[in-house]
């Protein structure tokens, strides 16, 4: 067999493997969507799980927890990434130590993060099963992912950009905030949105921190201290992903399977939406930047 033939065969095999992966994923998603679509109707989206077997509150809880998590983690992750890429000497011991810690944190199993949150936040700090416990635990889960993706975006800006900014007599802070951050922005945005997808689908971290119950919420109550208010951060809050887990382990009878499949569809659609938004952001912003 000559080398041209080998080349042809290997190209064929690689294409075939790629096609297989794509087909498998497409079939899997289509199956989940098709089997769950029938469960979705207006009532499913707008009633609480206690009254009408709906997921209204779980959907809200998921989005609210995501928002809080990103609000807490974004400033920390941005600061850490900026320090590690633009301020700390990359060859220093501290830099490699910090990088190592971030990598360890990012590969920590989420159930460990959840149990850690349960011990520290729920019990020790007496926050109970609450949104704030969940958001803080999710921050631990989210920080390394977000820090790394922001750091990668910042590293993507050529060193010469920083040099020529400084060479114009502009301060380091202004060079960073006016030139480097805007140039890294498309990458930072897609990092935020992709990490949002992972946070949104996270269950293990939340089971022991935000809890598994979803008290019916009164969406007209805007007093954040009232237990029925959706804004209250000290109430327990079951999310979509936790709901899927709970429905399947406690199996509430015949409806359980339907509810579970419907919830899966909503979860997948939202995560898919996040990814589409991330792509849209990075392409349009990149066009605006001109690269």
């Amino acid at each position: 067999m000559n080398r041209y033939r080998v080349n042809q065969i290997m190209t064929g095999i690689l294409n075939g493997v790629t096609l297989l992966v794509v087909l498998f994923i497409a079939a899997f998603i289509l199956y989940l969507l098709a089997s769950g679509m029938t469960a979705i109707n207006w009532r499913f989206l707008t009633t609480s799980s206690e009254v009408g077997l709906g997921i209204r509150d779980q959907l809200f809880n998921s989005l609210y927890l995501l928002l809080l998590t990103q609000l807490i983690s974004l400033p920390i992750a941005l600061g850490a990434a900026m320090a590690l890429t633009l301020y700390v000497d990359k060859r220093s011991k501290f830099a490699s130590f910090a990088q190592g810690l971030i990598q360890i944190l990012s590969s920590l199993p989420s159930i460990i993060v959840g149990l850690f949150g349960f011990l520290i936040l729920v019990l020790k700090f007496n926050l109970g099963f609450s949104i704030i416990s969940g958001a803080l635990a999710l921050t631990f889960f989210n920080l390394p992912i977000l820090t790394q993706s922001i750091a990668v975006s910042l590293q993507g800006v050529p060193d010469e950009v920083m040099q020529s900014g400084l060479a114009l007599g502009i301060s380091k802070w202004h060079t960073i905030t006016k030139i480097i951050l805007p140039e890294a922005m498309p990458g930072i945005w897609s990092g935020i949105v992709i990490s949002a997808g992972r946070v949104f689908g996270e269950a293990a971290t939340l089971i022991y921190t935000a809890g598994q119950s979803a008290p019916t919420l009164d969406y007209t109550n805007w007093n954040p201290l009232n237990p029925a208010s959706p804004l209250n951060i000290f109430r327990p809050a079951e999310t979509l992903a936790v709901h899927i887990w709970k429905v399947n382990t406690e199996s509430l009878g015949q409806d359980a399977a339907t509810v579970s499949r419907g919830t899966i569809v909503i979860l997948i659609l939202v995560v898919l939406l996040f990814n589409l938004v991330a792509r849209y952001f990075s392409t349009t912003m990149r066009k605006k930047v001109g690269r």
């Binding site: 050529p158 010469e160 020529s164 400084l166 007599g169 502009i170 301060s171 030139i179 930047v289 001109g290």
Partner: peptide, 30 residues
């Protein structure tokens, strides 16, 4: 201040990721 009095042009052109006008006016705006 020294660097604005002693300017430097590098080997690789490194314009900033915004308009020509904003590039040239950058040091003055800052």
């Amino acid at each position: 201040q020294l660097r604005s009095q002693v300017g430097m042009v590098y080997q690789q052109p490194t314009p900033f990721p915004f308009s020509i006008f904003d590039n040239v006016s950058f040091s003055q705006r800052m």
